[in-house]
């Protein structure tokens, strides 16, 4: 449905905004490398089922997300490594990995490798933006491109919420994906303060600065 398609394209847009920023400014300043590595982990653990993905739409997006994320990490770790400031990227990701790992082991739909990794990926994605938001907090401001990147990334999962509501009412056979919905709502909540600042500042053409 339209919400989900808009969400997936918002996700794709966020990746291209980030790529554009890094290549245009020839710098990855203000971008959390830790968050990008977490997203890489999210895609790998979620798309283990890539080989037998039946819908071409999903297949194409999965390939796009994995390949573009790999390229972003290459750019940050190799090409523009000097512009990476690890002293600003100090969030303890082990807490996030522990959080996702614990929930994946406690409440998977089924105790199979695919399902446990899928649940891990869903929970990890819900908190993967924290290092990036934390870095933003520390620097106190961000380039407009970085703010657009985070906004598009946040919008992607926010749009999945009406998608789930729509599917609940329109597809009688649709069973609610409780893990995805719970994590999706948590994820969107984590973006809420950013969205507020983004909406009030950037929409007025101002530079993105925290109050």
């Amino acid at each position: 449905n339209i919400f989900r398609v808009l969400g997936d394209f918002s996700h794709l847009a966020s990746i291209f905004i980030l790529l554009h920023k890094i290549q245009q400014l020839k710098s990855c300043s203000g971008i959390s490398f830790k968050s990008q590595v977490l997203y890489m982990l999210v895609y790998i653990t979620r798309y283990l089922d890539l080989p037998w993905t039946s819908s071409p739409y999903n297949f194409i997006f999965k390939v796009l997300f994995i390949s573009s994320e790999l390229y972003i990490i290459y750019l940050m770790a190799r090409a523009y490594k000097p512009t990476n400031d690890p002293n600003l990227d100090t969030f303890h990701v082990e807490f996030l990995l522990g959080f996702a790992g614990l929930l994946a082991l406690l409440f998977p739909y089924k105790y199979t490798i695919l399902e446990v990794f899928w649940a891990f990926s869903i929970w990890l994605e819900s908190v993967a933006i924290l290092p990036q938001l934390f870095m933003l907090q520390r620097t106190g401001e961000a380039e407009a491109m970085t703010a657009h990147y985070i906004a598009a990334l946040g919008m992607y999962r926010a749009l999945y919420i009406p998608n789930w509501i729509y599917r609940y009412f329109s597809e009688p056979t649709h069973k609610v994906d409780t893990i995805a919905v719970t994590a999706g709502i948590l994820q969107t909540i984590l973006y809420s303060d950013f969205f507020w600042i983004y909406y009030t500042k950037v929409m007025r053409g101002e530079k993105f600065k925290l109050p």
Binding site: H11, R46, W52, T53, S54, S55, F61
Partner: peptide, 10 residues
């Protein structure tokens, strides 16, 4: 975009 068993969303 239905998928058997697996998850049909990205």
């Amino acid at each position: 975009k239905k998928e058997e068993g697996g998850h049909d969303e990205l």
